[in-house]
């Protein structure tokens, strides 16, 4: 398949997954605020180095100046999908297109204020529908593998970021009801509360939450599960490239090493040796994998025309007479 198409599918898939994560985070934090309103839960959600003037919730939901806001993610996913609509199923394209249309309607913000819970639930359902359609309507060949790689890399990244940013919720061990609410919120932010309960059937404890989100082999939100799936797809893509007589690139080995960290890690050792450090190691491995996938499969060679003159290119595209 074309490098450009693979690149756009990769990022489309990342933005869809990112939007799901952002939506869940907003939704959960809103609930958290209702239960324990004396603490500012919103500010820690803003990445370091960024100052948000005004409402953090709005900034996360629809601020144009936040490229990772829910609305921006959906817009970018939809733009990318439009550019490669011949490579995805019509159902996927229509779902994303309609979601985007519903978010950009003038009445959309009113809906958010009126029933935020319902709004986020609906948005997540439609985004997950896009993911489900990718699975059900695409052949599980190259394009689908790029969609998978992107989704799981993004998810692993989001889960580690969640543990990083919400780590403060897991550290205040006072044995109060409020603690429980906070710990549950961390699980819910990753969409894992029910999964955790079913898996452990035990009281909620910070160490087990960390274990579940990082090391669980079967739950689809865990870092280990995500890395396993991503590495399987990367392996298939690399084999195709090798079969065509080309260098398969370093991504297979890099993700293999990251997998080893979570497959052979134990939560007590991780906490003993430094939780933040461990998260940092996993995150930098994820960043390397993403860069290497990009360099090997998505860019055949540096393309100067794609880097510069984007606006000029847009004008020329529009100028092409279609009689």
């Amino acid at each position: 398949m074309l490098c450009r198409v693979a690149d756009d599918l990769f990022w489309m898939s990342r933005y869809v997954e990112r939007a799901i994560g952002v939506s869940r985070l907003i939704d959960v934090t809103r609930h958290l605020e209702l239960d324990a309103g004396d603490i500012d839960f919103w500010t820690p959600l803003v990445p370091p180095g960024i100052t948000v003037t005004g409402d953090v919730r709005f900034w996360l939901t629809s601020a144009d100046e936040n490229p990772d806001s829910l609305v921006c993610c959906v817009r970018r996913a939809r733009e990318l999908a439009r550019g490669v609509r011949e490579s995805i199923s019509s159902e996927m394209w229509e779902e994303l297109n309609q979601l985007h249309a519903s978010l950009t309607r003038p009445t959309a913000t009113r809906e958010v204020r009126g029933d935020a819970g319902g709004f986020h639930r609906l948005v997540r359902e439609r985004l997950q529908h896009v993911q489900g359609l990718a699975d059900a309507t695409l052949a599980h060949d190259e394009p689908w593998h790029f969609i998978e790689i992107a989704m799981y890399l993004e998810r692993a990244h989001a889960t580690t970021m969640l543990l990083h940013r919400q780590g403060h919720l897991l550290t205040t061990v006072e044995g109060t009801d409020t603690d429980l609410v906070k710990w549950l919120a961390v699980l819910r932010s990753a969409g894992c509360a029910e999964g955790y309960a079913r898996y452990y059937a035990l009281r909620i404890e910070p160490a087990r939450i960390i274990e579940f989100l990082l090391l669980n082999p079967v739950f689809p939100q865990s870092v280990r599960f995500s890395l396993t799936r991503a590495s399987e797809s990367i392996g298939i893509i690399a084999a195709l490239r090798e079969g065509a007589g080309n260098d398969p690139g370093p991504a297979v080995r890099t993700i293999g090493r990251a997998r080893a960290l979570v497959e052979h890690g134990a939560v007590d050792e991780i906490l003993e040796q430094g939780f933040a450090e461990f998260l940092g190691t996993v995150q930098s491995a994820l960043a390397s994998v993403s860069d290497q996938v990009t360099a090997t499969y998505l860019r055949d060679q540096p393309q100067s025309s794609r880097l510069g003159g984007v606006e000029r290119a847009a004008v020329l595209m529009a100028e092409q007479q279609q009689q």
């Binding site: 439009r82 550019g83 609509r85 011949e86 290119a313 020329l316 595209m317 529009a318 092409q320 279609q322």
Partner: peptide, 15 residues
């Protein structure tokens, strides 16, 4: 020519 062209839908449709 790409996504900014007036007939981009048609190009994708035909491909």
């Amino acid at each position: 020519p790409g996504v900014h062209n007036s007939a981009f839908f048609e190009h994708a449709f035909l491909a």
